[in-house]
């Protein structure tokens, strides 16, 4: 069992997770998840492979319905709200999927333009300008007419980020942003995440198990333990490393160098 985070001073909650239970059919993946993601935080969801990190992310972005419990965005429960409220909430999310999830039949410009065309009534010329700016923001200026199959994995990820940022979302979700990137690209992406968070106060939720990233960008986190099927730690990852009483958490944060349990 874990307690909701109470040690924040004067921060507004962006997402509140209450008693969340996640399951696939009758198989319960995690239960009793309670935590708060504050506005402007870079929130890390950590845990070993297969513990349900990505599934938790799918719950947070409204792709999967919780088996039990609630997820509140500004006190609005996503699954209890009507379709219009759900749509307006979704408009506030930007999601970067693990492999970029770019639509392969569209150019990068068309990929980024899609959300803008869907949700705004801007004229095509201005959409084009916005798209070029977003691509430049992730260092892909000049790649507008390229197809996803013509660029590298790291570039796909950055293009995916440009698409996720198209509508200037309040909350950006990242699924394993640094997976498959070289250390320098991973570092640049981390810097970009920090800059995005700092420049516009965007709330960022990151699923990752890259320790370097966790310590470099994380301001708050939860740790999911598949053995007890719930979260076993929450808080600033740097503080958890020093203070966590749970050997599994320390083990995770020190690549197994801490208290060896298994």
């Amino acid at each position: 069992m874990s307690e909701p985070m109470e040690d924040k001073s004067g921060k507004e909650p962006a997402i509140v997770v209450k008693g969340l239970e996640m399951s696939y059919g009758s198989f319960v993946l995690m239960r009793d998840l309670n935590f708060t993601i504050d506005r402007g935080d870079i929130f890390i969801i950590m845990g070993g492979s297969g513990c349900g990190k990505s599934t938790l992310l799918k719950h947070l972005v409204g792709l999967k319905r919780p088996a039990k419990g609630q997820i509140l965005y500004d006190d609005v429960s996503y699954w209890d709200a009507g379709p219009e409220v759900q749509e307006s909430l979704k408009r506030r999310f930007g999601i970067l999927f693990q492999s970029g999830a770019l639509w392969s039949s569209m150019t990068l410009a068309e990929n980024v333009a899609m959300p803008l065309e869907q949700y705004t009534s801007l004229p095509p010329a201005q959409i084009r300008e916005l798209v070029s700016f977003k691509l430049a923001l992730v260092g892909l200026g000049g790649f507008e007419e390229f197809y996803p199959s013509e660029i590298s994995g790291g570039m796909k990820k950055r293009a995916g980020l440009a698409r996720a940022m198209a509508l200037d979302p309040d909350i950006l979700f990242f699924d394993e942003p640094s997976a498959g990137l070289d250390p320098i690209s991973a570092r640049l992406l981390d810097d970009l995440i920090i800059e995005l968070s700092e420049s516009r106060g965007t709330t960022v939720v990151v699923v990752t198990h890259e320790l370097a990233s966790i310590f470099a960008i994380g301001t708050n986190s939860v740790f999911l333990d598949p053995d007890v099927k719930t979260m076993t730690a929450a808080g600033d990852p740097k503080r958890l490393l020093k203070e966590s009483p749970d050997p599994k958490v320390v083990n995770f944060l020190t690549r197994g160098e801490g208290a060896r349990q298994q």
């Binding site: 260092g139 790649f143 700092e198």
Partner: peptide, 21 residues
């Protein structure tokens, strides 16, 4: 400061040069 940072990220100096398609 936020605007400055983002403008810097998107500046032409931070793009790959000589991209042709």
């Amino acid at each position: 400061a936020g605007v400055r940072k983002l403008m810097h990220l998107a500046s032409p100096e931070n793009q790959r040069s000589g991209v042709t398609h």
